[in-house]
């Protein structure tokens, strides 16, 4: 529970074929750990984006490690479209499970609660339903009127991974108001977290400090990775490195450029730290 390990040991949790949940850029993306995972080359990952992804997902796709992509969007934000994702979609390189943000949240909340599905409004009439045959339309069992509603199945990731500002030496992790990280972790069989720093004092010590904490109960492994979200932002700590994301966006337009970018990525991460 909440064992503090090296980055390499943490990355080894991501095994070939596993269902891996990753957060959106505003929640803290474990980029250092992503480089460590890529070094292990676990193939055929089923990546669940909570509820969208950017550079991290694009890198895993570009490296040929993604077998299934479950996401509501892939974008590099201001830097534009995600080039390796777009290319792989054209080539049909992986199974694509397009989604809509609240449906991903609902699936994880079902997983968190240990129930098989959750109902959600909207979606009916969207072409999403043509390929998301795992989403079903049912009659609202509590209504006498005709009231069709979508149910989405529970999502249970094998591993969820994110980057946070701080953990304590007992394995508790500060997540602030990024509550989807709690949902992700509780729905997952294992959760691995990289942090900027480890504090000596327990985060559960006071009511104030405990409010925004993911307890060690749900945390499998923690590794220290200073500036571990770079070049993406970390809430409350540092902003996005716009120039670096733009550099990636430009280089990743071709497979060769992407390979050249990735060649120096792990080294640049160390330099940025």
């Amino acid at each position: 529970m909440g064992e503090i390990v090296s980055l390499e040991e943490l990355a080894a949790e991501v095994q070939p074929g596993c269902k891996l949940a990753v957060p959106a850029d505003y929640c803290g993306v474990a980029m250092s750990a992503t480089a460590a995972i890529i070094a292990n080359r676990p193939k055929n990952l089923h990546v669940v984006c909570v509820p969208v992804t950017g550079m991290q997902g694009d890198m895993l796709i570009g490296e040929g490690l993604v077998g299934t992509l479950e996401t509501s969007a892939v974008t590099l934000g201001e830097a534009g479209g995600a080039p390796r994702f777009q290319d792989a979609v054209r080539k049909g390189s992986f199974k694509l499970m397009d989604a809509t943000c609240p449906a991903v949240h609902s699936g994880l909340i079902a997983g968190q609660k240990g129930v098989p599905f959750l109902p959600i409004r909207g979606i009916i009439g969207s072409d999403l339903l043509k390929t998301r045959t795992d989403w079903k339309t049912i009659q609202n069992p509590f209504s006498d009127e005709e009231d069709p509603i979508i149910v989405v199945p529970a999502i249970q990731p094998d591993v969820s991974i994110f980057h946070a500002p701080e953990a304590d030496r007992f394995g508790n992790v500060r997540i602030g108001r990024r509550r989807e990280l709690l949902t992700m972790a509780q729905a997952s069989k294992a959760t691995i977290v990289t942090v900027e720093r480890i504090s000596e004092e327990s985060l559960l010590k006071t009511e104030d400090s405990a409010a925004g904490v993911l307890p060690a109960l749900y945390v499998t492994k923690i590794a220290v990775a200073p500036r571990g979200a770079w070049p993406l932002p970390l809430w409350g700590e540092y902003g996005v490195d716009t120039a670096e994301v733009a550099r990636y966006a430009a280089m990743a337009r071709t497979p060769e450029g992407f390979a050249a970018y990735m060649d120096g990525f792990a080294r640049r991460l160390r330099e940025a730290a």
Partner: peptide, 27 residues
């Protein structure tokens, strides 16, 4: 359409994706 042009899933031009539109537009 926030997904792309051409035949899904292997769309010629691919945009980011639906985001929350398949929910927000209804509610």
């Amino acid at each position: 359409n926030l997904v792309g042009t051409g035949d899904y899933p292997q769309t010629e031009v691919r945009w980011p994706g639906c985001f929350g539109s398949a929910f927000m537009y209804y509610l």
